[in-house]
Design a protein around this nucleic acid. Structure first.
Lengths: 334, 334
DNA sequence: CGAGCCTATGTTACCGATGCCATCTGTAAC
DNA sequence: GTTACAGATGGCATCGGTAACATAGGCTCG
């Protein structure tokens, strides 16, 4: 009605003929409220278009019903953005708002600032969805005060870590190539600062070692197709390369392009397997054999862990989607 | 020191030997504070690890320094996620936090709930980054109270709309195919509820009309490669198809796959152009001719518009990246 | 029938900052 | 030597809720 300002609880109380406190109780579903009174309150709320003031609620209750999420700005890293969606969904379901802090790149200073920003906002908890490697004192200070869950990152004081077993993904991918008959599997890894990259690499190495194969030197990209292309150019020069495990689908496509440009067909000469199973993986040429992991579930699990403090939830095992980028080595190569 | 609770302004004031009011002034950079006093205050802040309470600030000042962002949950739609990144960057630069509300799909009810949720949080402004088509009374109520910018959506009361000229993208793409000598251009559009989809389709139609060509029936996908694949299967059955304009890169790859499976090569038999220029566009086979638009800038512009209320900022024109998915029609087709 | 207790509601203090006004000091102006 | 005024600071009310305690009525039970 009046254009003055948003109606407050006092206004509602007046309209309903009760005290503000009763309004508060009625709205929060306190058991000790007469159903009829509650009806009156709700009617008044509806009529006035009352909307409770989160700041005030937060100030007096000390809780904001908001969780902070730290993500990387660049949208390119598939698994992380899936985690983000999961976090949003999980938080939304629990009635929590999500406040995001993006950092432009992996950098300790930016990370500190993002944490501080969220802390300033009074978030009730923080999900760190970037691979935190080094932990500073400042970070410790914040994560000691605010419950924090790190998705695949280093442990900080009081912060829990939710891990997806990226090693398993590396093993599954590598084993698939070995099973096809390849004698050696090369690897184009992600940046070393990324836990995912490291663990996938470790899984690859473990698998080779278990098969009695000495791992070849690791090539490193930055997740982008462009970096895959560059590493692919190198791989194309090495005649004995018949199988490659790429740490991400996007890099895999870059590698494939470079190989083909140099006359090495995929999967004819070289088989490629990667990780992520992005939507395009099945539709580009050739359709990519890739390992799928449920990062979305990982996001919801992170929120659950944060809010309920439940124990480490079960994580789905990685699943290999076999498509056309992998094949048995050609006879001459065997 | 004490584990009790976060230090408050009063604690800082005590430590610095001044009043809480002076602390407030010092921290906010009020001009009327003795530099020496300010030093003392800052020292105390530093020593106590003081962190201001956003809720309290918000309650008393009435402003939250937070802007709300409404996005679609599904990460697949390239242009929207680029907008998101832009919004985050722009807001961060202006010292604003970003609170996100995701909606699972385009649905009026979900949209209302998302708006209400952000309003409850007391955001200072809202950026709607989903294509809002129908506007309800409830939405009007909220956007009348809170400054809102819609990125490519319908206008609501008091909400400004920031548009990217998607028509231009459609025209540029279509014209490119005509310039190559194609006599007809087919179109696989995005879902009709999406403004982008509609505008791109209009641009395509305008361009054909200007060239005196009657537009063929429109095929419709849902942005996903899978939907592109399905429409591609249909296109493959129509012999006279030599040129296709796809509304997104992902659909384009699906179309290409379907065409090739049916023996129609790209660009040999059919040329394909699309919109987005995702990273993979240049690295998949064939590299995709596509129209790039600066959605990131669109996001930062939305924030600028929201905060400064500046006039409609200039939008970069779309740029065509010509790659290998388009070519002149083969002689027999001409 | 009064003690004890439970239910429904009202009262009051407070969360932590800011806005407004009051105060105090020094200094320039008349 | 007042007056005027600006700069620096403090006091107090206030934002809109919630926690803690107080109160009033109705019920059970010995």
């Amino acid at each position: 009605m009046s254009v003055g300002r948003q109606p407050s609880m006092a206004d509602v109380a007046l309209a309903a003929g009760v005290s503000a406190q009763t309004v508060s109780r009625a709205l929060r579903g306190s058991p000790n409220v007469n159903p009829e009174t509650r009806q009156r309150v709700l009617a008044a709320v509806d009529q006035l278009g009352y909307r409770f003031n989160n700041a005030a609620k937060m100030l007096s209750s000390g809780r904001s019903h908001t969780i902070g999420l730290i993500v990387l700005q660049s949208g390119g890293y598939y698994s992380r953005s899936a985690v983000t969606a999961g976090v949003e969904a999980g938080a939304g379901e629990a009635g929590y708002a999500v406040s995001i802090a993006t950092i432009a790149r992996l950098d300790t200073g930016l990370m500190e600032r993002a944490l501080a920003k969220l802390a300033d906002q009074g978030v009730d908890g923080i999900v760190i969805a970037v691979p935190l490697i080094s932990v500073t004192q400042k970070m410790e200070d914040i994560t000691r005060d605010i419950p924090t869950v790190t998705v695949d990152g280093s442990r900080t004081a009081g912060a829990r870590v939710l891990g997806i077993d990226q090693r398993a993904a590396g093993r599954v991918a590598t084993q698939h190539l070995l099973d096809l008959g390849h004698r050696q599997v090369w690897h184009v890894a992600g940046p070393d600062e990324w836990i995912e990259a490291r663990q996938r690499r470790e899984g690859w190495r473990e698998c080779l070692t278990a098969a009695g194969i000495e791992a070849p030197p690791v090539l490193e990209g930055d997740w982008s197709p462009a970096s895959g292309y560059r590493q692919g150019q190198i791989l194309a020069m090495i005649p004995e390369v018949t199988a490659v495990f790429a740490a991400s689908d996007e890099m895999a496509f870059g590698i494939i392009r470079a190989l083909r440009e140099r006359g090495r067909s995929v999967p004819g000469h070289v088989s490629i397997v990667s990780v992520d199973d992005i939507e395009l993986a099945a539709y580009c040429a050739p359709p990519l054999t890739t390992v799928r992991q449920d990062f979305y579930a990982c996001g919801t699990a992170a929120v659950a862990l944060l809010l309920q403090g439940a124990g480490e939830p079960a994580v789905e095992p990685p699943v290999l989607a076999v498509r056309e980028s992998t094949a048995q080595p050609s006879v001459t190569d065997r």
